[in-house]
Amino acid sequence: MLFDLTDLSLFRHIVEAGSITHGAERAHLALAAASTRVRNMEKSLGAPLLTRTRQGVSPTHAGRTLLQHARVMLAQAERLREDLSSFSGGLAGQIRILSNTNALTEFLPEALGTFLAQHPQVSIDLEERLSDEIVGLIAEGVGDIGIVAGTVDTGSLETYPFRSDRFVLVVPNGHALAQSGSVPFAEMLGHDFVGLDRASALQRFLTDKAARIGKPLRLRVQLRSFDAVCRMVEAGVGLGIVPQTTAQRVGRTMAITAIDLQDAWAARDLTLCVRSRAELATSARQLVEHLRGGPRMSS
């Protein structure tokens, strides 16, 4: 049984993507080459590694066993590459971060910008996910560092405080709701909304909340950033839900009013989570310390 690191990395990407095609793209391999590698792995093992359906692929029992060992071996290989990089002048390692929408848009750009400026040999792979998804993926070893809402059960993961924020409703100045001190999300569902695109973790979260209440979230426009959402709100297209930090920042130049949401989920204590800080590569441990060192409360 001869599997090289390319085989193991490809297999991990395929399982995480749920598709040989998308896994090959993530591994930067042609589809034909990726398919050949998978077939050769299965032939070498003498057992199928993937269950193939029209909806995609999933690991067999043997595949799940391989995936578990592959993640350990790839992490060790990454630490080896990082330890040796100082001798060759190459990159000191790649850090995989999984973040919810709030942290990704409002806090990480500045924090990662200063870290990368201080560590030019480090690269970062950043992916947006729902908080509960992140916990499971970090526990499985898919990512190095997760940033999740503080209300999520993180199980046995090591956690550290990151930032505090809250979601607010934004309306145009002069709107009938502009004088409200606070409002419940459920009572807003009769209004038109402006939101983020369907791939956004936050938008999926809000759509699910509306569905649980039994009312649709009436989205007139879906955009790629909170700033763009606020601009559309200012133009009277609909209401928006954005982090308080966003509303405070753009409110200096836009004619919008922020209103507190009464719902408990609107409060956002953001938390860093890792499987084990001691097991992280040096660069990932340094990033955890860097992120922990930032301001704890939003201004």
Rank of each mutant, 00 (worst) to 15 (best):
E110T: 10
M232I: 00
L272K: 02
R64D: 12
I256D: 04
L287V: 07
H22R: 15
T207G: 09
S9Q: 10
V233D: 03
V38F: 08
S123P: 00
L219W: 02
F167P: 00
R96H: 15
A281K: 14
R129Q: 11
S123L: 12
A149E: 13
P59M: 10
G236K: 13
F162C: 03
C273G: 03
G141C: 04
T105P: 00
L130M: 15
V288M: 07
V221A: 08
V72T: 14
A139G: 02
G251P: 07
D132A: 13
D153Y: 07
R277S: 13
A255H: 13
A34K: 09
A264Y: 05
G93T: 14
D7I: 03
I124M: 06
L272R: 04
A34W: 08
R224S: 11
L31S: 11
Q244D: 09
L280Y: 05
D208A: 13
L291H: 01
V57P: 01
P243L: 08
L29V: 09
I97T: 06
E140F: 01
A176F: 09
T151P: 00
R37D: 09
R163H: 15
L84A: 12
L206H: 11
P59D: 05
S131A: 13
V233T: 06
L10Y: 08
I241C: 05
V242N: 02
Q244M: 05
L206D: 10
R220K: 10
E158R: 15
